[in-house]
Design a protein around this nucleic acid. Sequence first.
RNA 1: GGGUCAGUGCCCGAGCGGCCAAUGGGAUCUGGCUGUAAACCAGACGGCUUUGCCUACGGGGGUUCAAAUCCCUCCUGGCCCA
Length: 427
Amino acid sequence: MKLRDDWDFRGLAHQATSETVLDRLSAGGVTAYIGFDPTAPSLHLGSLLQLCNLRRLQMAGNRPIVLAGGGTGLIGDPSFKAVERPLLTKEHLEANVEGIRLQMSRFLDFSPSAGANQALLLDNAQWLTTISLTEFLRDVGKHFTVNQMIAKETVKSRLDRDDVGLSFTEFSYMLLQAYDFLRLHLDQGCTLQLGGSDQWGNITMGTELVRKITGATVDGLTSPLLLRANGEKFGKSDISNEHVWLDASLTSPFALHQFLLNAEDEMTPALLRFFTFLDHTTIQELDESTSTSPQQRRAQHALANEVVSLVHGVDAAKSAERAGEALFAESIAELDEATLLQVTADAPSSTFARDELRAGIDAPELLVRCELASSKAEARRFLEQGGVYVNNVRIDGDTPVDLTQALHDRYLVVRRGRRQLHLVVVA
RNA sequence: GGGUCAGUGCCCGAGCGGCCAAUGGGAUCUGGCUGUAAACCAGACGGCUUUGCCUACGGGGGUUCAAAUCCCUCCUGGCCCA
């Protein structure tokens, strides 16, 4: 299978500086890079597409470079951001780069055995923090006019607003990213930059800079933005409205699995194409299944299992699948102790004294202590609305929870709403 | 540095001396219907020892019986001028 055909099938290409980019990638031997913002200690679901694309490149015989934005992160990319973001410290960024490095290794082959295709991780802090201001202005700034810079769609929206401004620092961001491409071209022979469609403006600044300084033609290739049916960006959790992370300590394998399992029907074709490496026939069968018998959610299951396997390993995917079945399909009270613990392994837990529970705990109090409610007022609200369950049985706010309800004489599975869980262990 | 406009709950945004824990929209949450989906419907959405009290409308101070609303000052931001 040629890479070009695969990319066409999956709909991975949005914009390209040249028609022939995909053909060259199909032939192999291209060095390409993607930049990642180390603004967090982990990558999130939004970055997964880029990660998968790098992997696809490498499998097709190209050399992927991951560029951590340790230097650009000090500035902050203003592209399509409504307001300026707080600046991060150098130490903070370095720690984040380290976290990201670990996650990358699950997707890309960084080992020397990969030969000419060996993946490479670089940090642009290397060159951005050492170049002098005058050098930068002469060598890079000279090649761009402010006129073209403010014409970029990425900054235009900010300039048009009358309540916030755009600081010079942020405005300079695109020049730094352009310089990255130049460095990678000169040092590594890199001829292609990939990214999300929001990076198009920044990427073309880079291709232009390389052309002006070296005369060489390098390319840019972007992937489409993944949007939900309602037009929102995909990747934020419904539960916390926070990113879905690829780090198990930030988003558990179970939570990741659940998130994907709950994907809207309309999105599964795109998600399967973007985030999995399933072959085309399988994907088409799953599409078919979604339209003929959507209630089976075969596509969602396949998606969840594939992605969790890729990110956390096959075992994690299996146990997440099993946990979901137990929690939602079976009666929790009938589980044996080992299974119960396994099923709730991902949920936060806390320990209560046996005496305290023997006496009984008021339901609002219990919810607050389990961090299922941020205040007693909120806890009472949940109880009034019928959103609180102990061992999958709805409880009211008037009856205290006590030891007689404990499973195996020592566990209480407290649930708020559809899927916020907490395990109480009686000491 | 000068002028001017603005800063309200998670976000946007009304209110411009008492009837304000503060209209409305979005987000979020809970319930219903479902397929652990979407859409849709209903309700909730500062805290507490909850017929009441406390804390809140950028910070501090003041006027007043009473201030998110008036005055002073500081901070932050937009725009214009230098």
